[in-house]
Design a protein around this nucleic acid. Sequence first.
DNA 1: AAGAAAATATGAGATATCTCCTATTTTGAG
DNA 2: CTCAAAATAGGAGATATCTCATATTTTCTT
Lengths: 223, 223
Amino acid sequence: MEIYKADKKSLYLEKHSIEHLFSAPVKAFMEVHEYQRDDWIIKEGTRPDFLFFVVDGNAKIYITHQNGKVSLINFINAKEFIGEMELLHDVYYTKGIQASTKTICFALPMHHYRKQLMEDAKFLRELTRFLSIKATQMAMKYTQSLAFPLENRLADFILQTADNGVYKEKHVTVCDYLGVSYRHLLHVLTQFCEKQYLQKEGRKYHIKQYDALKGLSQVLKNK
Amino acid sequence: MEIYKADKKSLYLEKHSIEHLFSAPVKAFMEVHEYQRDDWIIKEGTRPDFLFFVVDGNAKIYITHQNGKVSLINFINAKEFIGEMELLHDVYYTKGIQASTKTICFALPMHHYRKQLMEDAKFLRELTRFLSIKATQMAMKYTQSLAFPLENRLADFILQTADNGVYKEKHVTVCDYLGVSYRHLLHVLTQFCEKQYLQKEGRKYHIKQYDALKGLSQVLKNK
DNA sequence: AAGAAAATATGAGATATCTCCTATTTTGAG
DNA sequence: CTCAAAATAGGAGATATCTCATATTTTCTT
């Protein structure tokens, strides 16, 4: 992890200003952190000292269960907060946050800004929106995971992440995200290939029948 | 549904004042609604005109999937909001909200108060807390549902809802809530009885081995 | 470049959970 | 009080998903 200083810092502060998220300035004590792929931005179970705002890159939220299973709760993208739960709650089990790519965050020291932020309507409005979307997303994922088999959820995920008709996510990550075993994921992918929805080439999968996948994923959606 | 007027209304407004949730008064246009058990406070897919605050009673959030399955997303208790998603978002698929008991809500007409509320730091702070807890809860339920079999989740649910050592929730509701089939729920309950964790009497279940259930439910928890 | 660790692949058998069916009991509306 | 609807109950077979085991390939570290 690198903390930007001097020019490198001010460059970032200017280029990606986030002053519009706050009523009062937060530049004074703000830091700019750069994390490399696979770095832990927050270690599970350890309270962070900063409220982060992701400027560039993306990350993953993990939780480890007592039975050893690991869940990838969600992805975090640019313009999202990290550490907001700890800002709001004194007691909270902190999830692990790992950078998926090189990730640059603005880091606001909580002890400096907590009080100010909790009285800042502009900031609270932003945070409220962010949390409301998060809550809705989680609720949808939850009910979908219970109501539909992997086939549907995987089809949806493939369409969401495919780039130019090509799906090439790491199986290991996808298992954690969709909450199924490696074995089963492979099994359903093979079915998709047998049905000619996908065509495998090395470790990439080419989408051959977009409509079929779309059909499977549509079933998840309300309206 | 009944709308309280005159004395009945002012009685409630005084007895359960919620002025402390807001910086500016909201009494002027506020209504007091009473719903009977099983009434729909909000019909699925229909935008509500009010932001509700539950004063008394409790309710359930439902969503119907395209395959006909129904999920009970969560319970809503006193001192919680309903309709906050529609307050924050112009486009939103509204879930159905059904009263589980007689439920009394304060109802703030959104068109009157939206602007004011979105600039009210005190209110936004409350809402932020509320949403953060909701988001965390959903995330936990989501990952738990993927990482653990019904056995564990049911044990947890039994302990949460048992009253004086007696569990007596409606199977139908529990199925929707835990996202399993009626058949399977019965199956696991029977197992609990065979293992002597529970003892069935009519349609009640007496908890016989608290520790065994506790053990099963503890596995879900982090720290 | 070599060896270790991580990721990919696949088989085989176990189990958690579902669907469909049918019967009985309880609840609610008129 | 009566009938229909809802809730409870359990059998039987299907299937979605898991665990374990093992082999190969790729990636990372030194």
